[in-house]
Each structure stands twice: as structure tokens, then as C-alpha cells.
């Protein structure tokens, strides 16, 4: 079984975690819960439930990656901190590397799995 490793910054272990989505959303400016939820749904197509969203907000605030901003409204806005930006940056870099590796391997596979045109017997061209 694969062992999960911890990333060096901020503990954002998995790239598809709500934490990454929230940090990405807050990178464009402070937002409250509903605005976060709608923004994430808009750019990632992921509908985070209220429990999941606030669970992630709690963890992110505990780690100092986001912080609440003063508000007179019941809607509590949050903003990303410097540590949060660093953690998001590290997570995105990790995702970029993964994407590059995946794309290059997928490209090689597409090339290797393409059958020769017009050939009666299956074959592969590189």
C-alpha cells in the first residue's frame, strides 16, 4: 500500500483537497463562506458541502494559512496569509510537476498505442 507523504509546506497533502480549492479561491481576494462556495463551484466545478467547507476552513485557520478579517456582518470573510500563499504555491508547483509527468507519459502512450495506418497486422509506431 502506498504511504501518504506530507508535503513540505503547510501540510497540503492532496492536491484535490478542499484546502487547495479554498486557498486558490482566496488568492484572488477575501471571501465569506457562501462566496467561497460559489467561486469554487465556478472555477473547479466542485460543490463543497457546508460541513466540508467549514471543516477545511477550521484546519486552514489552525495552521495559520488563512485568517478571518474584521466584519460587522454575520458572514465572516477570510483572507489568505503569507504562509497560505507559500503553501498554495508549493501545492500548485507539485500539481504542475504531476501534470507534466502525466501529460508526457500519456503523450508517449498515445503515440505508442497508435496502430499503423493501413496495416493488416496490429503494429505500433514510435
Amino acid at each position: 500500500m502506498a504511504k501518504r507523504t506530507t508535503s513540505p509546506v503547510g501540510g497540503l497533502e492532496r492536491n484535490n483537497e478542499p484546502a487547495v480549492l479554498i486557498l486558490t479561491s482566496l488568492a484572488s481576494g477575501e471571501k465569506h463562506g457562501y462566496a467561497l462556495s460559489k467561486d469554487i463551484e465556478g472555477f473547479a466545478g466542485v460543490a463543497l458541502g457546508p460541513g466540508t467547507l467549514y471543516g477545511a476552513i477550521t484546519r486552514l485557520e489552525e495552521r495559520g494559512l488563512i485568517e478571518p478579517t474584521p466584519s460587522d456582518d454575520r458572514r465572516q470573510p477570510y483572507r489568505i496569509t503569507a504562509s497560505g500563499r507559500a503553501a498554495l504555491s508549493a501545492a500548485l508547483e507539485q500539481m504542475r510537476q504531476l501534470s507534466e509527468i502525466g501529460t508526457s507519459r500519456l503523450g508517449a502512450r498515445i503515440a505508442t498505442s497508435r496502430p499503423t495506418l493501413g496495416g493488416a497486422t496490429p503494429g505500433y509506431s514510435l
Partner: peptide
Amino acid sequence: KYAEGMAALLEDTYGTGRVPIKV
């Protein structure tokens, strides 16, 4: 710490409607 903000999120999302059982 969080109930007010989360209740506001629920209110914004569901308003006077029924909150789904799944939620």
C-alpha cells in the same frame, strides 16, 4: 467561533427552503 458564519452560509444557500437530508 464558526457557528455564525456557517449559519449565514446555510441561510445564503437554502434561504427559507428545506435543507436536504444529505446536507
